[in-house]
Each structure stands twice: as C-alpha cells, then as structure tokens.
Computed example of a mutant assay.
Amino acid sequence: MKPLKGLILSGGKGTRLRPITHTSAKQLVPVANRPVLFYGIDAMAQAGISEIGIIIAPETGEEIKEVAGDGSQFGVKITYILQDEPAGLAHAVLTAEPFLGDSPFVMYLGDNLLQGGIDDLVAKFKQGEPDALILLTPVPDPEHFGVAELDGERVVALAEKPPEPKTNLALVGVYMFMPLIHDAARAIEPSPRGELEITDAIQYLVDNDKRVEPHIVQGWWKDTGRLDDMLEANRLILDRMESRVEGSLDSESAVEGRVVIEGGATLTRATVRGPAIIGKGATLTDCYIGPYTAIGEDCAVERAEVEHSILLAGSSVRGLDGRMEASLLGRNVHIARSVGQPKAYRFMVGDNSDIGIL
C-alpha cells in the first residue's frame, strides 16, 4: 500500500455555534485552549501521516491558514484546498482529488474529537486493505447522523440523517478510503438537500461488491458543532490533562486538582479547582474558577465565579453575584455588573445569542 495521505474538512458555516462562528471558523473554536482542528492534525501526525490536505471555505480559509500554517508546528506538510461551496463530503473528496491522487487516505472532519487517536485504525486499514473503513458508534439520536446497517462484519446499507433510522450506529467523522472512492463520488447524484453525500458514495461501493468494513468506536467521540458538545469535549480533554503551573500566584491563591496555568497568568486571592486551564496573560483576582473551565489568554476574571465554561481570548467577567456556568464566551466579550443607578440590565448582543438571567 502507498503511504496514506490525510484530508481534513474545515469548510462549513458552523451555524449551530453562532454567534461565535459569525466571526471565526468553527474548527478554530478552542477546546482546552486549543483549536479543535489541531486535535485532528495531531491525530494524523501521530499515526505517521505526513502529508495533509485541509479543505477550506472562502469565508474562513485565510483564518485557518494563518492559525495552522504550513504544518511544521505539527511535524507535517499542509496543503490548503479551496472548496467554493459546501456541497457535501463526497464533493470535498472530489475537490481534493488533485492532492490525493491515487493514494489511500484518511478523511477527518475538522470539528470532531476522537479519544485515543487513530493509530490503531490506520494500522488496521493498512493490514486489511479494505476499499473503505468506516467508524461507527451507538448514539441516542441517530436521526441526526449518517447511519449504518450491518450484517455481521459487513456494511450492507447507509443512510444520511434518516427520519426513521434502522439502527443506532452513527458514522463517526473519520473515514479511511482507497482511491476508488473518487469514482464512487463521481457516480452518485446530489441528495434531496443538494449535496453529494459521502454515505451515498460508500453505499455505491457496497452495491458494487466492494469491501467496506466497520469499526465500532469504544472510547468517546464528539462532534463539537453545538454548545453542549463543545463543553463536553472541553471536559473530556481537561480530564486527561497533566498539571503544570508556570504563571504566578500570590500567597492567598490556591490551586487544587489537575490545573494548567500558562506563563504570564497571574492569580491574586484566587482559587482554581481543576480540571481547568488558565491561558497566557490571564488575570484572576478575588475569584473562583471551578472544574472543567478553560480561560483563554489575556482573559480577566474578577470578583466572580466561573465553572464548566469556555472563555475565548481577551474576554472578561467581573462583579457577578451568582456563578457563571455552562457558558461559552467569544473573543473580547465583557460581562460585568454595572454600578450605576437605576439598576437595570444592559446588553449589546449579536445574532443567534443565548442568554440566561439569574
């Protein structure tokens, strides 16, 4: 088998994470203070894949290029591939064909997280050399995913977001293909929603007696397209972090449990209870940071309590009477209690925001 290449899909509009994704690619929203996209690149690098193509959209492509660069920070070479319109995963495969050529490849959705990486899966794919290897996991709401029907160790049918799923086995956002998938993608027609579905392309392989093998994922998998999933992914990543304190703490501050405090962060009369991560240059004053919280670089928390939340770079939370929890703040968002009279709530809120009042 030829060396595998990697294909990471980082187009898409991220409508379920608005308003954060009005101004940033959903694949760059951080989990444990690191863009989601980086975890997919890391997984490929650790599996020995050195050439990676990243599908980008016109709206967010430049931002992704700027953050991920040429791949040298990951030990890989990155090629950027522009997909003019979000016309489906199989369309993305065809768009990437000039880069992929006749190489087998791993396709990874850039907003997905998979526990344990893909080393074992790549080894299994190389050993068995099926025409496709698809990852599956049981989910409680299969109607929101691509769904596979099995007969023993054989995939017999696939459907994209079926209204009445026949199984609860959802396709995880990682696939392994032989170059034959390009012919399959050319052979299918757009779905009712106007996209070339990867499930239809894989079904084409099945219908033409090609070997499509399933692999049931044992660990966790997260599609980080929604707030709850982002917070859960943040929790899962923080849970396996190792403690590291490089910032400065005064004598009245306390750090409990697994906590990372990056260099340049300062804690004054602050308590951080892990798992949690505090980014570079953040300032915590007279505050409590609870478990499963990621505070981005240059953030400020003062006279407030924050738990199970994600704060992006440059945000601040000050003077809250109650605890802020299960929240995601975008870049440079400022939440504070006004000291003026009369007492009133004042907001400037973007489209598709969601605010809960104490």
Rank of each mutant, 00 (worst) to 15 (best):
G71V: 07
R226M: 13
N168I: 06
E51T: 04
Y108W: 06
G173D: 12
T199C: 13
Y175I: 03
T283G: 06
R303E: 14
E189A: 11
I355V: 13
A159L: 02
R18G: 03
P163H: 01
I20W: 07
V106Y: 05
E85V: 06
G314A: 03
G322W: 01
V36N: 01
D351P: 04
P140K: 13
F74C: 00
A270E: 03
V122F: 01
H144Y: 13
L37A: 13
L320I: 14
L121R: 09
Y288A: 03
P86V: 04
P214T: 11
G247Q: 07
I118G: 12
E305Y: 01
E195V: 11
L7R: 10
F177S: 05
Y204S: 05
R211A: 10
P192T: 08
A282C: 14
V306W: 10
N208C: 02
T95G: 08
Q203Y: 08
E242N: 14
L180M: 05
C299G: 03
I278E: 01
R318I: 11
R154P: 02
V122C: 01
S309R: 04
G128C: 07
E302W: 14
A45R: 10
M178K: 15
Q203A: 03
P138F: 08
V333S: 11
I81N: 05
A313I: 12
G281M: 11
L150F: 15
H215P: 08
P165E: 05
V259H: 05
E164R: 04
I181H: 11
L133Y: 04
A57P: 06
E66F: 01
R154E: 14
